[in-house]
Design a protein around this nucleic acid. Structure first.
Lengths: 334, 334
DNA sequence: TTGTACGCGTTATCAT
DNA sequence: ATGATAACGCGTACAA
């Protein structure tokens, strides 16, 4: 492994000074064309590779952004990370990635590691540290789809999504509208799905039931819970046309499979609608009608917000951006 | 945003020299307990945060590892990334992540960015650059489950996995054994699944068919192709007990859904076995029998290999580690 | 046990 | 248009 080539080497080789070499990269206009060519040549001959760390130390801009996701086993987060990484093309920021696994202690450690590397900003998707705590950190932060009272953040307009889902079920002339979700507090953006469902049902006086309860932490547990829920719903609303709006696509898929296993079919009186438009909704046994979350727009908006904060160090005003969801009609609604 | 505190500030505050402050972190034994306390105190009072970039510049160890995945939409890669990130706890390395999306031009750019940040090593899961090209880079590299002729790498023992799958189907007294996979070249580790299948079938004189063809690039395309394949298989082997070993769980799930939609059931004479033990195999309509790839072991082995290379700069000998797969019997085999 | 002086590879300021 | 010199924040001989 040959010794690393530095500006000094190039300088000696070309009989210029280090400064001129630096300028070659940062202000090439100020060099004569001839000298530019000479330097270009030397760079190739000596096989120079830039050292960004030295650059960072000298000018302070690391071009790093830290990102903390709760996990990568849920496609939702994996897909979000994927879109965030893709913004490299547009913004040039590199990403240092950590998985929090809902451990606040580890998350704090990750954050201090990140800060030690002079990251210019952070994107938080995990839920285990409050926005209040995070807001005290000395770097720009943007959250995605999480509690964000004290921080800039982007979320899907979940309230609107719930409205779209519910009124679509209504338009299908369902006899009973059911929403299944976890018990949530209003700070959580997901709560707006429940909120929207209830609002429209009450305003329009639609027969409805809200099932808000613990829905399991593992797939098996969730499956068991939904089997139970299915029994309840199936007997309670026998013969009625049911419109079931479920918290997310993963759960909708579980429910769909249970119904299908029971009836060897999805009966006409079952209408299921999920949320997220994640891959499972497309790849399910019967492609699932769902509310599309524009993950691409979400992640791009997050990066825009963050880059803005990084560049204009001012921005006292909190910004919360909402992204419009849309209805994807597939085959679990008739 | 207050000015950043440095060793100099701490030094002035405590009337020690910078060196002593440095030693506080790197060789605390050499300080008296009393002085350690004084410094500790000052660090807190002034709210010091370490600057790892400066440290890296001074001592050359960035504690960065670069990692390039093909994408994160396939759970396989997302899960692998997840396990690799988790090794932070054991090895302390931070990860700079890029998604190649099978673009060799971008991948080369990512790599030079990574090298510019003095990464100590790289883990490659993407397929678009040959191990020969990669082996010319001036940093330690380990590959996971890909062509690795000129580089250290870890793979699942796919040959063994195919043997296990096939002989399990044989033990079920199938009349015909079928393997569905893409057309692969022998350098690709996945080829060993086909290789193993053929070997055992021929050695034991088992009736078999190999379907090796293009299987689609999008989910829709793949689905269409498998619908076609199902028609062929279903008519050709009517009444026979079929043992179908499919390239991976995602495809196995697609095939399962097609069969189920057709028969509203999985008939006794259909035996399906996937590969990977990815989440979809557990969460399918009927949990899918599959070959377990130990992703945890794979990623850990990869990190061990890499850390080894980083520490002992020698290692001329190429190392290829194979990880044992195992059979997970679920409900698509009878 | 502690301090001095220099190096790591850039950028920035001020000259020329 | 180009150069000399001093940062950036920390590690490490070597000296004391």
């Amino acid at each position: 492994m040959q010794k690393k080539i530095t500006f000094d080497d190039i300088a000696k080789y070309t009989h210029f000074s280090k400064t001129t070499i630096s300028r070659y990269f940062n202000h090439p206009e100020t060099l004569t064309e001839k000298n530019r060519a000479i330097i270009k040549d030397a760079l190739e001959k000596l096989n120079y590779h830039e050292n960004k760390l030295a650059k960072v130390l000298a000018n302070g801009k690391s071009e790093f952004i830290g990102i903390i996701v709760p996990n990568l086993s849920m496609h939702y987060y994996a897909e979000m990370l994927s879109h965030i990484l893709a913004t490299y093309q547009e913004f040039g920021y590199k990403f240092l990635v950590f998985e929090s696994n809902d451990d606040p202690v580890m998350e704090r450690q990750y954050i201090s590691e990140l800060i030690a590397y002079n990251i210019e900003g952070m994107i938080i998707l995990s839920h285990c540290l409050s926005s209040q705590e995070l807001s005290r950190l000395p770097i720009p932060i943007v959250t995605i789809e999480r509690e964000s009272q004290f921080l800039n953040g982007v979320t899907t307009d979940n309230y609107r999504g719930a409205l779209i889902a519910t009124s679509y079920l209504q338009s299908l002339n369902c006899d009973i509208l059911i929403h299944i979700n976890s018990e949530l507090t209003p700070e959580n953006p997901d709560y707006e799905r429940t909120h929207g469902f209830l609002d429209i049902c009450e305003k329009e006086h639609l027969p409805h039931q809200l099932i808000a309860q613990y829905l399991g932490a593992t797939w098996d547990e969730t499956n068991t819970i939904y089997e139970d829920l299915f029994q309840q719903i199936d007997t309670k609303y026998q013969g009625q046309k049911k419109g079931i709006f479920i918290a997310n696509d993963t759960h909708a898929n579980i429910f769909l499979n249970i119904v299908y296993r029971h009836y060897r079919n999805l009966p006409e009186d079952y209408n299921i609608i999920g949320f997220d438009d994640s891959s499972i909704s497309r790849e399910a046994l019967i492609p699932i009608t769902t509310i599309h979350q524009n993950i691409d727009t979400l992640s791009h908006a997050a990066m825009e917000l963050l880059v803005d904060q990084i560049q204009n160090k001012k921005s006292k005003q909190l910004i919360h951006r909402q992204v419009e969801p849309s209805l994807i009609i597939r085959h679990t609604t008739h």
